[in-house]
Amino acid sequence: MSEKVIIELKGLTKTFGEQQVLKGIDLKFYENEFLTLLGPSGCGKTTTLRIIAGFDDPSSGEVLFDGVDISKIPPYKREVNTVFQKYALFPFLNVYDNVAFGLKIKKTDKKIIEHKVTEVLKLVGLSGFEKRDVSSLSGGQQQRVAIARALVNEPKVLLLDEPLGALDAKLRKEMQIELKKIQKEVGITFIFVTHDQEEALSMSDTVVVMNEGIIQQVGTPEDIYNEPENRFVASFIGESNIIEAVMIKDLLVEFDGIQFDCVDKGFKENEDVEVVIRPEDIDIVKHEDARLKGVVKSIVFKGVHHEIVVETEKRDYLIHTTDYFEPGLEVGLTFGPDDIHVMYRMDWE
């Protein structure tokens, strides 16, 4: 990742009929960055990608590419390439000709095309597949052809629209690692769209969480996970305990009638806030050792951990732990100051 901005979106809006799908997107994409647009379906992430690719026009706002507004330039003149959700390989062309399509359009010399196609097929692990019919390939292989077809044009930015959505779980994991490797190797910006938070966290340099046409948070996967800025981000990025609380003063927050030390500051005194505590950050201790007390309501084995719900006076807490606790057992709950993440209260939703 470098410091140079390659694409900048300024005040981007998009309205389809009555429905406003983008409500003012401001975002910077850096060179060599693996950036993921993450959000539930209908949040505007795919529309944002399509506007960058040139398939949709923004209703207002600018798309700056290397500082130049490209929002009026047709897709075939943009230095970006797209990997489509359902691959969109040309059924009447074999693997080689699919990959060579873009170079042939640009009237590249035949020898150079041959060299580049061979190289890119090697990169995606499909050497020797040149003459194969695309319909004879598996989903994962078709995906690789689609990536090769886009990369062979040496775009400055590669756009990927939920490219792993159609693959099974195991293949998805493999392709995630593969994609990250490819991105490092070619050293260009990848803009990746997904609704899968795990995928976003494991692959990205930067995650952009979107909802209802608005950017909720931009940050590294660690930031997004550990320091969610609001309830939406906290709940979308994995299971969480989200608790309405009051910020008494800097470093002191009160919820469930108990005051806890925390590491957050900068809020107003007695401001209404929300607190997120990740299930794996809560420890179950003996009843008498904790200020927050409750009863084990249920326990479910999840493989690596148990998922335990502890019922306290005010609410149920979700806890992930490797230990086993009998339902009905009276327990205490503890967490450290840095396990408490204070967020601004959202008025909407």
């Binding site: 690719a53 398939f55 897709p75 390439n81 797209t82 359902k86 969109a88 399509f101 077809r149």
Partner: peptide, 15 residues
């Protein structure tokens, strides 16, 4: 015809 094929062609530089 799947519209994404048309978009793919334009994406790859075809006017």
């Amino acid at each position: 015809i799947d519209n994404s094929l048309i978009e793919a062609a334009m994406d790859l530089g075809a006017d």
